[in-house]
Write a protein that binds this DNA or RNA. Structure first.
Length: 113
DNA sequence: GATATGACATGTT
DNA sequence: CAACATGCCATAT
């Protein structure tokens, strides 16, 4: 059935693609939601990435802490527990985080390398 | 099918 | 550089 994928693939495929991209992000690097979506073939679906991470199944080894918005700011307020957790993980990966902001110039991940 | 919500992106103030 | 407003798209109800 080729009519199923006329222009968009099933949500399950899309979700797998997003998770695959996240799992492909090397340590010490960070990527923005828009980038991950684009790399997964879902350009413009930045919110979709966030939606998946928000609904992450327990047991998924997804390094969500390596995902931030295009501005380099954390996706949640500093009052959130995940905020500290993310910075904690990023710091453990040798990533410098100042004022809830990440040095994209030094840690922005690129698919080419 | 419409309305409301969201771990975003971009532009303007 | 920061805050606010608008646009984008998918999911949930």
């Amino acid at each position: 059935m080729a009519l199923c994928a006329s222009k968009r693939m099933p949500s399950e495929e899309a979700r797998s693609a997003i998770l695959a991209i996240l799992a492909n992000i090397p340590a010490g690097k960070v990527a923005s939601y828009g980038m991950v979506a684009e790399f997964a073939g879902l350009k413009g679906h930045a919110r979709y990435v966030g939606y998946i991470l928000k609904n992450l199944p327990e047991g998924s080894k997804i390094p969500w802490h390596r995902v931030i918005n295009a501005s380099g700011h954390c996706a949640f307020p500093p009052d959130s527990p995940q905020y500290k957790t993310q910075i904690e993980k990023l710091t453990a990966e040798n990533i410098l985080v100042l004022g809830g902001r990440v040095e994209l110039k030094h840690h922005l991940w690129k698919p080419k390398g």
